[in-house]
Design a protein around this nucleic acid. Structure first.
Length: 593
DNA sequence: GTGAAGGGCCAC
DNA sequence: AAACGTGGCCCTTCAC
């Protein structure tokens, strides 16, 4: 592919190039950086292409005059990048958005992300990779050579090959955009794509902002856990080798307590009836009878706390900011949910002892907001079941209402036990639980569980009908969709009953889980737009929750904005069932306080 | 020595 | 025996 490019190194060239580029509706945009983290490296090149002409801005030339963020000569470029009049086409826009925000001091405006588009079109399929080279090849047939990607972008004089490579990556985005935009339309993915694209900047800003972790508190908690560690592991070691003549000249044979096979063998040796696995939920019933099981469960909990939620997380605290800047994958699951890593801020234990370590910096407050039972409300909406919807409209406690219906008692007479059954049933339904599994988790026999589920579906007739209908449709069409049109293709062998069953559950669950993701992403965008000009920043998001941080004096205003935008996002998709958001202003992430 | 796979367990 | 959806991280085991 022939690329015409112009290298921009002076103020005059820059303003002329921006003037020229501002004539187009769509621009390809790419950057070349020296590192992966914007705090660690320089933003060397920024390439913008209108398809005819590609401009390569050498930002090192402008950096020589001082900080890029305060360089007034870059104003035309900032305006071009931040405006919503022109669609900027990027591949993995979050990456560039972070560099642009951190180094140029402006937020990326309206964008089209060919990486996210490719994942949406693949709809859960894994037969295709989503690098720019792969996506370009697949959608346009153009082969890209990426060997210069990892070349040295810090040297003063770049090679012609480097600059050409940079220009070409920006130019390819335009034909790619044409192809992919049409494909999104044909696949009914326009709205889902719109949600994803408009969520890029909020996520980029969230990652840059980071989440403050109180190192002292975290170490304090870790210390408390470690205190009990040695005693528990010694006791367990002792109990596991009791009655077994494993003593050698060197003393008792040590069992690796972290080795599942070794522990299982040891348990068998001392006469504890162990099933095929040693999962906690299987061991739990044995804990009362066998002290060694109780000890094992204690050990596992402590070990988990130390290894997963110990000092390793502190290594992610950034030296400059004192905050954790985790990686969020926008389409982490095919359902549309985020995933998070390095570290995973979506799996911090719910226990206040951990959550209170994540806090607002001095002078600030955290605003913690989560959707109340969003997936059940989505299910109510989809099924149209009047009883189910009513239980949300009335604003009464859903689980006791369900219990009242299922057990045939007045709502005031529902026992905590009955409510707990109803709660577990409500949640199980979303995932397609069967009677055998439900019995297992509640301690009921399978036939008792069957009876209870029959009463449940007898009460919520349309819910039952919806779940059946949804199940047979996804098996017939091999496709599931969320409210935004986000799509999941199902692959299974129709002769394999297990595969069909798994596909059915997955296909029934996906629209529910995925619509929840649609709503959250929409809310992130709405909230992001409305906090412009305030001190508020989004600092974390966990499936149905948004955490923001702002100055104390703005906390009340920001919490109102957060509630309103989350409710608004919800009502864009959910019309018949009310949306409720639970919100608190707090010094830290714990429930109390 | 390194990486994949699988068990186990945390979140929603 | 079990079939309740999505993820990431830590550990052990085992193959290369």
């Amino acid at each position: 592919m022939e690329v015409y490019y112009q290298l921009i190194r002076s103020d005059q060239e820059l303003s002329r190039a921006c003037e020229e580029l501002s004539q187009s509706n769509v621009l390809g945009l790419d950057t070349e950086t020296s590192e992966l983290d914007p705090r660690d490296g320089i933003l060397r090149l920024l390439q913008l292409s209108n398809g005819e002409q590609t401009y390569v801005f050498d930002l090192l030339a402008f950096a020589e005059m001082g900080d890029l963020r305060s360089n007034k000569a870059l104003a035309p470029l900032r305006d071009l990048l931040a405006n919503d009049r022109q669609i900027k086409v990027l591949h993995n826009a979050k990456f560039d958005a972070k560099w642009i925000s951190h180094h140029l001091g402006c937020e990326l405006g309206k964008c089209f992300d060919t990486y996210l588009a490719s994942i949406l079109i693949a709809a859960g399929g894994s037969d295709r990779r989503h690098s720019l080279a792969d996506v370009a090849q697949f959608f346009t047939g153009i082969e890209l050579d990426k060997t210069e990607q990892v070349s040295d972008w810090t040297q003063r004089d770049l090679s012609a090959s480097q600059i050409e490579y940079a220009a070409r990556d920006a130019k390819i985005l335009l034909p790619l955009y044409e192809q992919m935009a049409e494909r999104l339309r044909n696949d009914g993915l326009e709205k889902a794509a719109e949600i994803e694209f408009s969520c890029v900047t909020p996520i980029a800003e969230m990652e840059l902002a980071g989440f403050f972790l109180d190192r002292e508190r975290w170490l304090g908690q870790l210390e408390r856990v470690q205190l009990s560690r040695n005693a528990v592991s010694e006791d367990l070691q002792e109990m596991l080798s009791a009655g077994v003549s494993q003593n050698s000249l060197f003393g008792r044979a040590e069992i690796n307590l972290d080795s599942q096979p070794q522990v299982a063998t040891a348990l068998a040796n001392i006469g504890v009836p162990i099933q095929d696995t040693t999962k906690a939920w299987q061991l739990q019933p044995l804990a009362e009878k066998y002290p060694v099981i109780d000890k094992l469960l204690q050990y596992r909990a402590i070990q988990k706390a130390i290894t997963s939620y110990g000092e390793n997380i502190l290594e992610y605290v950034n030296d400059e900011t004192g905050r954790i800047h985790a990686d969020f994958r926008q389409i982490g699951a095919p359902t549309g949910r985020f995933s998070c890593s390095n570290p995973n801020l979506q799996q911090i234990p719910h226990d206040d002892a951990y959550r209170r370590c994540f806090r607002a910096e001095p002078g600030n407050k955290l605003i913690v907001a989560d959707y109340s039972q969003i997936e059940l409300r989505i299910l109510a909406e989809f099924s149209g079941d009047p009883q189910f919807i009513d239980s949300f409209v009335s604003g009464k406690d859903l689980h006791s209402m369900t219990a009242a219906q299922v057990f045939g008692v007045e709502q005031d007479a529902v026992t905590p036990d009955q409510r707990s059954f109803a709660k577990r049933l409500n949640f199980g339904i979303v995932y397609g639980v069967g009677a055998s599994r439900f019995g297992m988790m509640t301690g009921l026999s399978t036939s008792e569980a069957e009876n209870m589920m029959r009463r449940y579906f007898g009460t919520f007739r349309m819910l039952d009908a919806y779940l059946r209908e949804s199940g047979s449709t996804v098996i017939k069409d091999r496709i599931a969709r969320t409210a935004s049109g986000r799509m999941l293709k199902l692959t299974f062998d129709e002769n394999d009953k297990q595969q069909v069953g798994a596909a059915r559950r997955y296909g029934v669950n996906m629209p529910i889980q995925g619509t929840s993701a649609d709503i959250l992403k929409r809310a992130l965008r709405l909230f992001h737009d409305q906090i412009a000009g305030t001190s508020a920043k989004i600092v974390n998001t966990v499936h149905d929750e948004i955490v923001a941080e702002c100055r104390v004096d703005e906390a009340k205003t920001v919490s109102e904005i957060l509630r309103n935008t989350m409710v608004q996002a919800g009502t864009e998709f959910i019309k018949k069932t009310p949306i409720a958001v639970e919100i608190r202003v707090s010094d830290d992430w714990s429930k109390s306080n």
